[in-house]
Design a protein around this nucleic acid. Structure first.
Length: 333
DNA sequence: GTTCCACCGGAAACGGGGGACC
DNA sequence: GGTCCCCCGTTTCCGGTGGAAC
């Protein structure tokens, strides 16, 4: 059944990217100066999750590396590396320059200094989920650093610009901005067809079944591939030659849940308790939520910290905040 | 329409933990 | 071993907001 499981993984970079020609051309134009050993234009990729932003950025750099012998690049997920220090540390990893840096004693300025003295080949940094950076100074730092080009990725353009200060906004307005839309049904189907062709036995799924999966994924490629992965895994265990409808049907909620579970796994114990309370009490009000949290946890954190945790849960797309002020409630997505 | 106040989130301070240096 | 410095999760403080109550 499964010939190459890698193509069903989220991190997989395909040999060709479909339905993103316009976006790919725009990104390639922005990166083109690198081929002449010049810094690329800053590129800004916006759009909903599962629209192929990260995939396209990685793909474009992979293509670029085929054309340019000397090129360094580094991928930074600002959701995980959200402080200035951590993001800089990750960036320096891209040029193998972190051996003597200690996470709890080296000053951030020392990392900046090291980056400033970098004189290797052109260096492209992908900052994914850039709106999650706690300190926007990092973007200034990188703008000022010679020899570093940036690809910035975020979900919502307006939200990001709203919190940046004017100097940065004017610079970013000059950047190449590339907007991604959700995939259309037929686009998702053809993405799935490719994955089946590259990774599974021939004809294990009918066109109709792929349409079904694509429809359930609602424009999100990550969810679509998650469902496909779940169905293929199940069918492999059952040792069948084609995937029956029942397996596809069962894989739809499971595939969605897998995407969710990946996020839940990254939560801290306190965040997991909050998620659990909201799961059990849909539409819970803040005061009740805090009270219940205090009940369940041995050493509860302050309310302000809890609010930070809730913001995090909302950003992971695990919970939703409804209403404002006294009308605020929390529920699962 | 006005007042009240629960709630939010920014900013700054605090303190734990860990490495460097003497 | 003592002291200093640094990062970072957490806490404290507080002004702004908007729905509820009057």
């Amino acid at each position: 059944m499964i010939q190459d499981a890698r193509v069903l993984q989220d991190e997989f970079i395909p040999r060709e990217v479909e339905h993103r020609d316009h976006e790919m051309n725009a990104l390639s134009r922005a990166l083109a100066p690198v081929t002449a050993n010049e810094p690329a234009e800053t590129a800004f990729l916006f759009g909903p999750s599962g629209a192929g932003k990260t995939c396209l950025a990685r793909y474009a750099l992979a293509r670029l590396r085929e054309a340019v012998i000397d090129l360094n690049y580094q991928y930074v997920n600002c959701w995980q590396d959200y402080t200035r220090f951590r993001a800089l540390y990750r960036i320096l990893e891209g040029i193998g320059s972190t051996a003597d840096i200690h996470r709890q004693s080296t000053p951030t300025d020392a990392l900046l200094e090291r980056l400033a003295t970098y004189d290797g080949p052109e260096f492209v940094v992908i900052l994914d989920e850039v709106d999650q950076l706690h300190d926007d100074d990092l973007l200034y730092d990188l703008y000022r650093t010679v020899g570093i080009s940036m690809i910035l990725i975020a979900n919502r353009e307006e939200e990001l610009f709203a919190r940046l200060d004017n100097r940065l906004v004017s610079r970013l307005h000059a950047a190449t901005r590339i907007r991604f839309e959700k995939y259309e049904l037929n686009e998702l189907v053809s993405i799935l067809e490719d994955r089946v062709r590259w990774g599974l036995d021939e004809d294990v799924l009918s066109r109709k079944q792929l349409e079904w999966i694509a429809d359930a994924a609602a424009g999100d490629a990550r969810v679509a591939i998650g469902i496909l992965r779940s169905a293929a895994r199940e069918a492999e265990q059952d040792d069948v030659e084609t995937i029956p409808d029942e397996t596809v049907e069962a894989a739809i909620p499971r595939g969605r849940q897998e995407v969710k579970d990946k996020n839940i796994d990254q939560l801290t114990p306190h965040q997991k308790v909050l998620y659990e309370i909201i799961r059990e009490n849909d539409g819970v009000a803040p005061n009740l939520l805090y009270a219940e949290y205090n009940e369940r946890v041995a050493e509860p954190r302050a309310e302000r910290t809890v609010r930070n945790h809730l913001t995090k849960l909302a950003h992971y797309n695990l919970i939703e905040k409804h209403g404002k002020g006294r009308g605020r409630t929390y529920s699962l997505v």
